[in-house]
Simulated scan of single mutants.
Amino acid sequence: MDILVCVGSSCHLKGSRQVISAFTQLIKEHQLEDRLTLKGSFCMGKCSCKGISVKVEDDFYSLIPEDVEKFFAETVMGRL
């Protein structure tokens, strides 16, 4: 399953690097490297959202760095 994190200007300023780092750590902790692929993406057209644009499969989400762990547990792990 692919997880795309926007690294465009707006999301970069909102903390996309922190989100990517948190996802990377969680994927390693749960030993899911063979089931999840984390990718950076340029603008997804959701810049008006409060947080960083994240796409899991065909669904878009808006995350702040502090919410990544909860999102991972509920949304990502829930799809595996």
Rank of each mutant, 00 (worst) to 15 (best):
S9K: 09
H30S: 10
L13Y: 06
K14P: 13
I27P: 07
E29W: 01
L26S: 00
S21M: 12
V19F: 08
V5A: 05
S9P: 05
L32S: 02
S9Y: 13
C11E: 06
Q25H: 10
H30R: 09
L13P: 00
Q25A: 13
S10Y: 08
Q31T: 10
Q18C: 01
G8E: 07
R17L: 15
S21V: 10
V5N: 03
L26Y: 03
H12S: 14
S9R: 11
S9E: 13
F23P: 01
H12F: 15
V7D: 13
I20E: 05
L26D: 03
Q25P: 00
V19T: 11
S16Y: 03
C6D: 01
I27E: 04
D34F: 12
Q25R: 14
Q31G: 04
V5I: 13
K14Q: 11
E29C: 06
C6F: 03
S21K: 13
S10M: 06
K28A: 10
I27K: 00
E33K: 01
Q31P: 00
K14S: 13
K14C: 15
G15V: 08
H30K: 09
G8L: 07
H30W: 05
H30G: 07
S16E: 09
L13N: 10
K14G: 14
G8I: 07
V19K: 05
F23T: 02
Q18D: 14
K28P: 03
C6S: 04
F23E: 01
T24N: 11
S10H: 08
H12L: 12
L26Q: 08
L26E: 01
C6N: 00
T24C: 02
S16H: 07
I27T: 07
I20N: 00
E29D: 15
A22E: 14
V5T: 09
L13W: 02
S9V: 12
V7R: 10
H12K: 11
V19S: 05
Q31H: 15
C11Y: 03
Q31Y: 05
E33Y: 00
Q18A: 14
G8H: 03
I27L: 05
Q18E: 15
S21N: 15
A22T: 15
Q25G: 00
V5H: 00
L26P: 01
S21H: 13
V5M: 04
A22I: 12
H30T: 08
S21D: 15
Q18M: 08
E29T: 08
H12N: 12
D34E: 15
R17F: 15
S10A: 13
Q25S: 13
V5Q: 04
L13C: 03
I20G: 03
V7K: 09
T24E: 12
I20W: 06
V5D: 05
Q31D: 14
S16N: 07
L32C: 07
V5R: 01
S9F: 11
L32R: 02
K28R: 11
L26T: 02
D34R: 11
C11G: 08
D34L: 10
D34M: 09
L32E: 08
E33F: 01
D34V: 11
K14F: 14
S16G: 04
H30V: 02
D34S: 14
Q25Y: 08
S16R: 03
Q18L: 14
Q25V: 12
H30P: 00
V5L: 04
G15H: 05
V5E: 02
I20H: 02
T24G: 08
V7C: 12
V7W: 01
E33D: 09
H12D: 11
V19L: 07
S21P: 05
I27F: 05
C11N: 02
